[in-house]
Amino acid sequence: MSAVSQTPLKKIIISLVFVVLGCLLILQFINRPVIENPPVTGDLQAPQEVKAILKRACYDCHSNESNIRWYDKIAPAYWKVAEDVKKGREGLNFSVWSAMAKPEQAAKLWEAVNQIQAGAMPIKSYQIVHPGTKVSATDLLILRNYLSGTVTSKLADTSKTNALDIQYDKWAKGAEAPKTNLPVALNGIEFIPDYKNWQVVTTSDRFDNNSLRVVFGNDIAIKAIKKNHINPWPNGAIFAKVAWDRLKDANGNVKTGAFKQVEYMIKNDKKYASTAGWGFARFKTPKMLPYGKTRLFATECVNCHRPMKNNDFVFTMPVKH
């Protein structure tokens, strides 16, 4: 290349670099979010080797001990870091662990390990910039073994069998869920009494939280399964998942105990665009009490279902009947 053509090009490149650097510099001062580390009020209690993995891989976004490196503080990357820390703490914060009830703690830990196993956490872009935070296969095994050790497959105790007897008696005598004046979740979704007349999509035996489950599908869902049109699921498809206590006798026979809840996912990619295209709702006990403290309760559902985003946020692998 001749010297004549190189000079203007060089000039252009140099001035461009300066413009970019100048912009970057200005970016550092506008809209700068603050990441604070509030006090740790009740840190996660777990064996040392378990905690070490979580501290290394997760605490930057899921605790009040975020270690923001100097290179994380450069905007625009810093904006994403701040957003991740804010959202990360909202969904899971190991520094306020003791504020949760024991079953909630257990559920969160199973969720955490499942997010790692599915490759959803730690967030990919963060892992690339912070290679030391990768959770290795050995780490994952340590976490899984720890969780497996926390579940004991206990025999049904009298409190659980009594709970079933009381419910069963009422139900067998004709007590039903409300059919008019349907309970409504805070996001506007109504209880659907017809779930029990739908076809089965799958069953599931949850040893993490001692429950048995049946997933039902409405006609649109069942037709979609028949035709293998399940990714994405068609609008109008509805799942209903019922959970019962898991009652085990001395011979290892497990039956369903008291009815705990029914949960719905209603597909409508426009109406429910803000919650991954699905309307989520959960109704608890035979009274079908709507679950959730605020209208945004479904964020919790979406976040746990997110590792399934390539499967339209659905865990279930349908069994054709």
Binding site: I230, T256, M317
Partner: peptide, 28 residues
């Protein structure tokens, strides 16, 4: 995404019976 090994053969026509779920259980 279909659970093939658990699925019933199509020509068994189980779903045409239109049966409802009565109960679910496990034998450990």
């Amino acid at each position: 995404l279909i659970n093939k090994e658990a699925s019933l053969p199509e020509d068994f026509n189980f779903s045409k019976l239109g049966l409802k779920v009565l109960s679910s259980s496990v034998n450990e």
